[in-house]
Amino acid sequence: MQYKLIWELIKKDWAEAYKSRQVLLMTTVAPFLLGVGLPAFILIIMGSVPLDSLDNDLKIFLQLLPAVTPDWNFLSERAKGLILFSIFGQLFLLLIPVMIGSYVSADTIIGEKERQTIEGLFLLPLTDLEILIAKVGVSFIPIIGLTWLMSLLYAGIVDLVLITHLDRILLPDIRFILLVLFFTPLLGLASITVTVLVSSRVSTVRDAQQITGILLIPAMLLVIGQMIIILINTWLIIIGTIILLVFDLLTLKISLTFFNREKLVTST
Protein backbone atom coordinates (compact mmCIF):
# COMPACT_ATOMS: atom_id res chain seq x y z
CA MET A 1 0.00 0.00 0.00
CA GLN A 2 1.46 3.38 -1.06
CA TYR A 3 0.38 5.44 1.96
CA LYS A 4 2.50 8.45 1.01
CA LEU A 5 0.79 8.73 -2.38
CA ILE A 6 -2.65 8.19 -0.83
CA TRP A 7 -1.89 11.07 1.55
CA GLU A 8 -0.77 13.30 -1.36
CA LEU A 9 -4.06 12.59 -3.17
CA ILE A 10 -6.05 13.38 -0.03
CA LYS A 11 -4.19 16.68 0.41
CA LYS A 12 -4.77 17.61 -3.23
CA ASP A 13 -8.49 16.84 -2.92
CA TRP A 14 -8.77 18.95 0.22
CA ALA A 15 -7.00 21.85 -1.44
CA GLU A 16 -9.38 21.54 -4.37
CA ALA A 17 -12.60 20.89 -2.45
CA TYR A 18 -12.03 23.75 -0.02
CA LYS A 19 -11.62 26.21 -2.90
CA SER A 20 -15.36 25.65 -3.42
CA ARG A 21 -17.42 28.06 -1.33
CA GLN A 22 -20.28 25.54 -0.98
CA VAL A 23 -17.95 22.85 0.37
CA LEU A 24 -16.37 25.34 2.75
CA LEU A 25 -19.76 26.50 4.09
CA MET A 26 -21.04 22.95 4.29
CA THR A 27 -18.10 21.82 6.39
CA THR A 28 -17.66 24.84 8.66
CA VAL A 29 -20.64 27.14 9.23
CA ALA A 30 -23.41 24.58 8.68
CA PRO A 31 -22.12 21.97 11.17
CA PHE A 32 -21.61 24.55 13.90
CA LEU A 33 -25.03 26.10 13.40
CA LEU A 34 -26.83 22.78 13.21
CA GLY A 35 -24.69 20.65 15.49
CA VAL A 36 -23.87 23.09 18.27
CA GLY A 37 -25.74 26.36 17.81
CA LEU A 38 -29.30 25.04 17.52
CA PRO A 39 -29.20 22.39 20.29
CA ALA A 40 -27.36 24.80 22.59
CA PHE A 41 -30.00 27.45 21.97
CA ILE A 42 -32.79 24.97 22.81
CA LEU A 43 -30.99 23.87 25.99
CA ILE A 44 -30.34 27.41 27.17
CA ILE A 45 -34.02 28.33 26.63
CA MET A 46 -35.11 25.13 28.39
CA GLY A 47 -32.79 25.83 31.29
CA SER A 48 -34.20 29.30 31.85
CA VAL A 49 -37.99 28.78 31.52
CA PRO A 50 -40.03 28.58 34.78
CA LEU A 51 -40.64 25.05 36.11
CA ASP A 52 -44.42 25.26 35.75
CA SER A 53 -44.24 25.98 32.08
CA LEU A 54 -42.84 22.48 31.38
CA ASP A 55 -45.32 20.77 29.15
CA ASN A 56 -47.51 18.11 30.78
CA ASP A 57 -46.85 15.65 27.97
CA LEU A 58 -43.14 16.03 28.58
CA LYS A 59 -43.63 15.34 32.27
CA ILE A 60 -45.54 12.13 31.44
CA PHE A 61 -42.85 11.14 28.93
CA LEU A 62 -40.15 11.67 31.56
CA GLN A 63 -42.01 9.41 33.98
CA LEU A 64 -42.23 6.68 31.35
CA LEU A 65 -38.54 6.80 30.48
CA PRO A 66 -36.17 4.21 32.00
CA ALA A 67 -33.30 5.59 34.08
CA VAL A 68 -31.00 7.50 31.76
CA THR A 69 -28.37 8.20 34.43
CA PRO A 70 -27.52 6.26 37.61
CA ASP A 71 -29.02 9.08 39.74
CA TRP A 72 -32.11 9.47 37.53
CA ASN A 73 -34.68 8.76 40.27
CA PHE A 74 -33.17 11.43 42.52
CA LEU A 75 -33.24 14.20 39.94
CA SER A 76 -35.75 17.01 39.60
CA GLU A 77 -38.11 17.06 36.62
CA ARG A 78 -36.31 20.07 35.18
CA ALA A 79 -32.95 18.24 35.41
CA LYS A 80 -34.51 15.17 33.78
CA GLY A 81 -36.00 17.35 31.04
CA LEU A 82 -32.65 19.03 30.40
CA ILE A 83 -30.86 15.67 30.23
CA LEU A 84 -33.46 14.48 27.74
CA PHE A 85 -33.00 17.59 25.62
CA SER A 86 -29.21 17.24 25.80
CA ILE A 87 -29.62 13.73 24.36
CA PHE A 88 -32.06 15.06 21.79
CA GLY A 89 -29.41 17.62 20.76
CA GLN A 90 -27.00 14.77 20.06
CA LEU A 91 -29.25 13.73 17.16
CA PHE A 92 -28.02 16.85 15.37
CA LEU A 93 -24.45 15.71 15.95
CA LEU A 94 -25.38 12.53 14.10
CA LEU A 95 -26.80 14.41 11.14
CA ILE A 96 -23.66 16.44 10.44
CA PRO A 97 -21.33 13.59 9.37
CA VAL A 98 -24.03 12.15 7.12
CA MET A 99 -24.54 15.51 5.47
CA ILE A 100 -20.83 16.31 5.07
CA GLY A 101 -19.91 12.77 4.10
CA SER A 102 -22.22 12.61 1.14
CA TYR A 103 -21.61 16.21 0.04
CA VAL A 104 -17.80 16.20 0.09
CA SER A 105 -17.34 12.69 -1.26
CA ALA A 106 -19.67 13.39 -4.20
CA ASP A 107 -17.58 16.47 -5.02
CA THR A 108 -14.27 14.64 -4.85
CA ILE A 109 -15.27 11.44 -6.64
CA ILE A 110 -17.79 12.26 -9.32
CA GLY A 111 -16.39 15.82 -9.44
CA GLU A 112 -13.26 14.33 -11.06
CA LYS A 113 -15.45 13.03 -13.84
CA GLU A 114 -17.48 16.21 -14.17
CA ARG A 115 -14.37 18.40 -14.26
CA GLN A 116 -12.70 16.05 -16.79
CA THR A 117 -9.79 15.11 -14.56
CA ILE A 118 -10.69 11.45 -14.12
CA GLU A 119 -8.24 10.30 -16.82
CA GLY A 120 -5.47 12.12 -15.01
CA LEU A 121 -6.50 10.44 -11.76
CA PHE A 122 -6.46 6.98 -13.31
CA LEU A 123 -3.10 7.60 -14.96
CA LEU A 124 -1.52 7.98 -11.52
CA PRO A 125 0.45 4.98 -10.28
CA LEU A 126 -2.25 3.96 -7.79
CA THR A 127 -4.36 0.83 -7.48
CA ASP A 128 -8.18 0.92 -7.37
CA LEU A 129 -8.07 0.25 -3.63
CA GLU A 130 -5.59 3.09 -3.03
CA ILE A 131 -7.76 5.54 -4.98
CA LEU A 132 -10.84 4.40 -3.07
CA ILE A 133 -9.08 4.74 0.30
CA ALA A 134 -7.92 8.26 -0.60
CA LYS A 135 -11.37 9.30 -1.78
CA VAL A 136 -13.01 7.96 1.37
CA GLY A 137 -10.30 9.54 3.52
CA VAL A 138 -10.90 12.97 1.98
CA SER A 139 -14.37 13.06 3.57
CA PHE A 140 -13.81 10.75 6.53
CA ILE A 141 -10.91 12.62 8.14
CA PRO A 142 -12.76 15.98 8.31
CA ILE A 143 -15.84 14.15 9.56
CA ILE A 144 -13.91 12.70 12.49
CA GLY A 145 -12.25 16.01 13.23
CA LEU A 146 -15.50 17.98 13.05
CA THR A 147 -17.50 15.41 15.02
CA TRP A 148 -14.97 15.40 17.84
CA LEU A 149 -14.61 19.16 17.88
CA MET A 150 -18.36 19.75 17.83
CA SER A 151 -18.95 17.07 20.45
CA LEU A 152 -16.40 18.71 22.70
CA LEU A 153 -18.10 22.08 22.27
CA TYR A 154 -21.51 20.55 22.73
CA ALA A 155 -20.45 18.70 25.90
CA GLY A 156 -19.06 21.95 27.26
CA ILE A 157 -22.30 23.82 26.60
CA VAL A 158 -24.43 21.00 28.09
CA ASP A 159 -22.30 20.92 31.22
CA LEU A 160 -22.41 24.70 31.57
CA VAL A 161 -26.21 24.71 31.39
CA LEU A 162 -26.79 21.59 33.50
CA ILE A 163 -24.19 21.95 36.22
CA THR A 164 -26.42 24.16 38.36
CA HIS A 165 -29.25 21.62 38.09
CA LEU A 166 -27.20 18.46 38.62
CA ASP A 167 -24.33 19.67 40.82
CA ARG A 168 -22.02 17.64 38.58
CA ILE A 169 -21.04 17.49 34.93
CA LEU A 170 -23.18 15.26 32.69
CA LEU A 171 -20.89 14.80 29.70
CA PRO A 172 -18.86 12.95 28.75
CA ASP A 173 -20.35 9.71 30.03
CA ILE A 174 -19.60 6.26 28.59
CA ARG A 175 -22.64 6.47 26.30
CA PHE A 176 -21.51 9.82 24.88
CA ILE A 177 -17.91 8.62 24.45
CA LEU A 178 -19.06 5.54 22.50
CA LEU A 179 -21.36 7.69 20.44
CA VAL A 180 -18.70 10.27 19.57
CA LEU A 181 -15.70 8.00 19.15
CA PHE A 182 -17.30 5.16 17.19
CA PHE A 183 -20.98 5.42 16.30
CA THR A 184 -20.98 8.88 14.70
CA PRO A 185 -17.82 8.48 12.57
CA LEU A 186 -19.11 5.10 11.34
CA LEU A 187 -22.45 6.68 10.47
CA GLY A 188 -20.57 9.32 8.48
CA LEU A 189 -18.52 6.59 6.82
CA ALA A 190 -21.77 4.88 5.81
CA SER A 191 -22.89 8.02 3.97
CA ILE A 192 -19.49 8.18 2.22
CA THR A 193 -19.53 4.55 1.12
CA VAL A 194 -23.09 4.88 -0.19
CA THR A 195 -22.00 7.97 -2.15
CA VAL A 196 -18.98 6.11 -3.54
CA LEU A 197 -21.28 3.33 -4.66
CA VAL A 198 -23.72 5.79 -6.25
CA SER A 199 -20.87 7.74 -7.90
CA SER A 200 -19.96 4.83 -10.15
CA ARG A 201 -23.44 5.01 -11.67
CA VAL A 202 -23.96 8.75 -12.27
CA SER A 203 -22.33 11.52 -14.30
CA THR A 204 -22.65 14.69 -12.24
CA VAL A 205 -22.02 15.77 -8.65
CA ARG A 206 -25.62 16.98 -8.41
CA ASP A 207 -26.95 13.57 -9.51
CA ALA A 208 -24.76 11.84 -6.94
CA GLN A 209 -25.88 14.20 -4.16
CA GLN A 210 -29.54 13.87 -5.10
CA ILE A 211 -29.53 10.08 -5.34
CA THR A 212 -27.54 9.76 -2.11
CA GLY A 213 -30.01 12.12 -0.48
CA ILE A 214 -32.96 10.06 -1.71
CA LEU A 215 -31.33 6.89 -0.37
CA LEU A 216 -29.96 8.26 2.88
CA ILE A 217 -32.53 10.72 4.17
CA PRO A 218 -35.45 8.25 4.59
CA ALA A 219 -33.07 5.72 6.13
CA MET A 220 -31.69 8.40 8.42
CA LEU A 221 -35.14 9.59 9.44
CA LEU A 222 -36.11 6.03 10.22
CA VAL A 223 -33.00 5.47 12.30
CA ILE A 224 -33.06 8.89 13.94
CA GLY A 225 -36.72 8.38 14.84
CA GLN A 226 -35.61 5.46 16.96
CA MET A 227 -32.38 7.10 18.06
CA ILE A 228 -33.78 8.64 21.20
CA ILE A 229 -34.31 5.10 22.48
CA ILE A 230 -30.89 3.98 21.23
CA LEU A 231 -29.11 7.04 22.63
CA ILE A 232 -30.20 6.39 26.18
CA ASN A 233 -28.97 2.82 26.13
CA THR A 234 -25.25 2.05 26.04
CA TRP A 235 -25.76 -1.52 24.80
CA LEU A 236 -27.91 -0.34 21.90
CA ILE A 237 -25.15 2.09 20.92
CA ILE A 238 -22.62 -0.77 20.94
CA ILE A 239 -24.93 -2.97 18.83
CA GLY A 240 -25.61 -0.05 16.45
CA THR A 241 -21.86 0.56 16.12
CA ILE A 242 -21.23 -3.08 15.20
CA ILE A 243 -24.06 -3.02 12.63
CA LEU A 244 -22.67 0.18 11.11
CA LEU A 245 -19.16 -1.29 10.96
CA VAL A 246 -20.43 -4.35 9.08
CA PHE A 247 -22.50 -2.13 6.76
CA ASP A 248 -19.50 0.12 6.03
CA LEU A 249 -17.15 -2.77 5.28
CA LEU A 250 -19.75 -4.40 3.09
CA THR A 251 -20.47 -1.26 1.04
CA LEU A 252 -16.74 -0.58 0.69
CA LYS A 253 -16.22 -4.11 -0.59
CA ILE A 254 -19.12 -3.71 -3.05
CA SER A 255 -17.77 -0.30 -4.15
CA LEU A 256 -14.40 -1.86 -4.90
CA THR A 257 -16.06 -4.66 -6.87
CA PHE A 258 -18.09 -2.17 -8.92
CA PHE A 259 -15.18 0.28 -9.33
CA ASN A 260 -14.76 0.28 -13.10
CA ARG A 261 -12.06 2.58 -14.46
CA GLU A 262 -13.04 1.88 -18.03
CA LYS A 263 -16.66 2.78 -17.49
CA LEU A 264 -15.72 5.98 -15.67
CA VAL A 265 -13.27 6.99 -18.42
CA THR A 266 -15.40 6.14 -21.43
CA SER A 267 -18.89 7.09 -20.25
CA THR A 268 -19.97 10.67 -20.80
Partner: peptide
Protein backbone atom coordinates in the same frame (compact mmCIF):
# COMPACT_ATOMS: atom_id res chain seq x y z
CA UNK B 1 1.94 4.13 -15.41
CA UNK B 2 5.11 5.09 -13.55
CA UNK B 3 7.14 5.18 -16.77
CA UNK B 4 4.74 6.95 -19.13
CA UNK B 5 3.67 10.56 -19.39
CA UNK B 6 0.37 11.44 -21.00
CA UNK B 7 -1.04 14.68 -22.35
CA UNK B 8 -4.61 14.10 -23.40
CA UNK B 9 -7.06 16.24 -25.34
CA UNK B 10 -9.06 17.00 -22.16
CA UNK B 11 -7.10 19.30 -19.85
CA UNK B 12 -6.79 16.89 -16.87
CA UNK B 13 -5.84 19.89 -14.78
CA UNK B 14 -7.37 20.91 -11.48
CA UNK B 15 -8.80 24.30 -12.39
CA UNK B 16 -9.42 25.45 -8.81
CA UNK B 17 -5.74 24.90 -7.96
CA UNK B 18 -2.77 26.97 -9.05
CA UNK B 19 -0.40 25.73 -11.74
CA UNK B 20 2.22 25.17 -9.05
CA UNK B 21 -0.17 23.06 -6.95
CA UNK B 22 -1.08 20.99 -10.03
CA UNK B 23 2.54 20.37 -10.92
CA UNK B 24 3.69 19.70 -7.35
CA UNK B 25 0.93 17.14 -6.96
CA UNK B 26 1.86 15.39 -10.19
CA UNK B 27 5.56 15.38 -9.41
CA UNK B 28 5.06 13.96 -5.92
CA UNK B 29 2.73 11.25 -7.21
Amino acid sequence: RRTVGVQTDSPNLYLRLSAKQNLLFSAKM
